[in-house]
Design a protein around this nucleic acid. Structure first.
Lengths: 121, 121
DNA sequence: ATTACGCTTAGCTATTGAGCTAAGTATTTT
DNA sequence: AAAATACTTAGCTCAATAGCTAAGCGTAAT
């Protein structure tokens, strides 16, 4: 029962490692097998596999085994969750700006009334 | 001597915690003191402080102490690093699409030649 | 039928992260 | 001057992460 927040946890955590980001970059060019993916890294295979599993659990990749080869594929849709979060943050900033604007507008309104009273006097 | 990659590590790591994301959300509305920020969380202050320090080290917030109060401010510019990384990934995908397009175009070209030979015959 | 390949499992170590309590410091407030 | 406020430091626990080696297992090649 993963909720939105804990999915974000996993997502960001998955991205917080240079090996995993490199794998994502590689998969951006197209699917690949575990050993193809592992080849550039100076790391024991079981260690590398952990990264792959982490990526899969975060939803950023899918994997499928045929025969003795496991093929990994980028799950591009998952990146939308990141964009979403960023949008939410920006929305908050915008909201703030709006309120600032309202303050400024309210002040202008106030000043207009002041001026009006000047002329009324 | 932080490089681009380890800065991304810190950035994503900072975002991989719900408390820290909540703090960023709160700061999106405007700066706040440590105790104001901590108030909604059922957590000892020193524990909360660790999150604040983590956020500061990741570059996502700045803090300044005046008297006995430390005020935290969102460093919006830092979010651009996220957007950048996302763009890079998308750029990779696009590059792939381009190559696919080239394949398709090459195939169309081939078929055109085939047809031409038909008519030539 | 063997051997080689491509993972996979099990289990160990060291480091880091998230939380805690207790006690300390520096500023305000009273 | 004393008390209250707002952090801050020190140091502990527990769980999770990143790495390793050694050995196992199913599939493919010879």
């Amino acid at each position: 029962m993963e909720n939105y927040s804990s999915e974000l946890d996993g997502l960001f955590q998955a991205l917080a490692d240079p090996t995993r980001r490199a794998v994502l970059g590689r998969l951006g060019h197209g699917s690949a097998s575990i050993s193809d993916l592992a080849e550039p890294f100076d790391m024991a295979l079981p260690s590398f596999m952990k990264h792959v599993r982490f990526l899969e659990e975060s939803g950023l990749i899918r994997t499928r085994k045929q025969g003795r080869v496991r093929t990994c594929t980028l799950e591009r849709a998952r990146f939308a969750m990141l964009e979403n979060w960023l949008s939410e943050q920006r929305a908050i900033w915008e909201a703030r700006t709006d309120r600032l604007e309202q303050l400024v507008l309210a002040k202008q309104e106030f000043l207009r009334h002041e001026q009006k009273r000047e002329t009324d006097r």
